[in-house]
Structures are given as structure tokens and as C-alpha cells.
Computed example of a mutant assay.
Amino acid sequence: MSLNNSILNLLGIEDRNIKVLNVETTSKNNEQLKVTHASLSYPVARCKNCGFETVVKNGFRKTHLRLASLNGMRYEMILAKQRYYCSNCQTTFGATTDLTKPNQTLTRKLKSQIMLF
């Protein structure tokens, strides 16, 4: 088992397209937290808008996700999501993951952890 899979397994993330780059411990408001830097990318065959095969990769967009806490320590993830561009309809779209709903930063597991308390 690789280090990447071990970190994702510890955090409870099952998305195979997420690659962990590094993990660091920082302090924010006198509170220790672990920040995981990762990237999300996968091949796209067709445009989501028009359906043509004219999609190319178009950089990354960083998002800041709050993960569920383990053993009282706070975990966050800086996730660089791949952006795609369709040269046929001139639209852009990004890679998606099941960790969060679109345009949200709280993960589904964190929301369920909050509801338990």
C-alpha cells in the first residue's frame, strides 16, 4: 500500500483520482491542525455541455476543504482541482469529487459528524 493510499484511507477518502502531495502541521488561532495538499485530475473524453471530443486540460483551481476531525485534531485539505476547456463551445468546467457538494467547502463526513453532536 502506497503512502498516498494510506493517508487517504486514514482520512476516510475513497476517491481514486485524488493524489496526496504533502501533509503539514500548522497552527491557526492557537489550534494545531493538519493540512493535506492534494490534486484531483482524471481524463475527460467529452464536453459536459456540448458532448464533443474537443476537451483539453486548462490548469488547476485550488479549493479549501474542511475534513472530519480525528482524535480531537482538525484536518483540512487544499485540493487543486483540474480545469477543462472545450474548444468547440468555449466553456470551462472542473473536476468533481464526491467529498463535497458543488461550491461547498464542508465535506459530507464533517456535516454528518456535526449532526451527531
Results as ranks from 00 to 15, higher is better:
40 L>V: 08
56 V>K: 05
32 Q>T: 13
41 S>N: 04
29 N>M: 06
71 N>A: 14
76 E>Y: 11
21 L>T: 06
102 P>F: 05
49 N>A: 07
28 K>Q: 09
76 E>A: 14
25 T>A: 13
48 K>Y: 07
62 K>V: 09
27 S>K: 12
113 Q>R: 00
30 N>E: 07
115 M>T: 15
40 L>M: 06
114 I>H: 03
42 Y>N: 06
56 V>N: 04
71 N>E: 11
97 T>Q: 02
29 N>E: 07
91 T>K: 13
93 F>Y: 12
64 H>Y: 13
39 S>A: 13
1 M>G: 10
116 L>P: 00
62 K>G: 06
26 T>L: 15
110 L>K: 04
57 K>F: 05
51 G>F: 01
106 L>H: 11
50 C>P: 04
78 I>L: 14
7 I>D: 01
68 A>Q: 15
104 Q>H: 14
92 T>N: 10
84 Y>A: 13
67 L>Y: 03
109 K>T: 15
65 L>K: 02
101 K>M: 08
29 N>V: 04
47 C>M: 10
33 L>T: 03
67 L>K: 02
37 H>P: 01
91 T>L: 10
24 E>T: 10
88 N>E: 09
116 L>A: 15
94 G>C: 10
49 N>I: 07
5 N>V: 02
19 K>T: 12
27 S>Q: 14
2 S>K: 13
4 N>A: 03
69 S>K: 12
51 G>R: 00
28 K>V: 08
82 Q>S: 08
109 K>I: 05
104 Q>W: 06
100 T>H: 06
11 L>V: 07
104 Q>A: 09
52 F>A: 10
19 K>N: 11
72 G>D: 07
24 E>M: 07
98 D>Q: 14
85 Y>N: 06
34 K>Y: 05
39 S>P: 00
26 T>I: 15
21 L>E: 12
10 L>P: 02
45 A>H: 07
59 G>I: 05
45 A>C: 04
57 K>Q: 09
108 R>F: 04
107 T>W: 03
12 G>W: 03
59 G>A: 06
1 M>P: 08
78 I>D: 15
40 L>W: 05
76 E>F: 10
6 S>M: 11
76 E>T: 13
110 L>N: 00
45 A>D: 07
114 I>A: 05
116 L>M: 13
95 A>R: 08
79 L>W: 07
82 Q>R: 12
99 L>N: 04
36 T>V: 14
66 R>N: 14
91 T>I: 09
65 L>A: 01
85 Y>H: 13
44 V>K: 12
41 S>W: 00
8 L>G: 09
71 N>T: 14
31 E>R: 10
95 A>Y: 04
70 L>S: 15
110 L>T: 05
69 S>P: 13
71 N>L: 12
18 I>P: 00
43 P>N: 04
64 H>I: 08
22 N>G: 02
11 L>I: 02
102 P>I: 10
86 C>E: 07
41 S>Y: 00
63 T>H: 15
67 L>H: 03
65 L>P: 03
67 L>F: 03
100 T>K: 06
39 S>K: 13
101 K>Y: 10
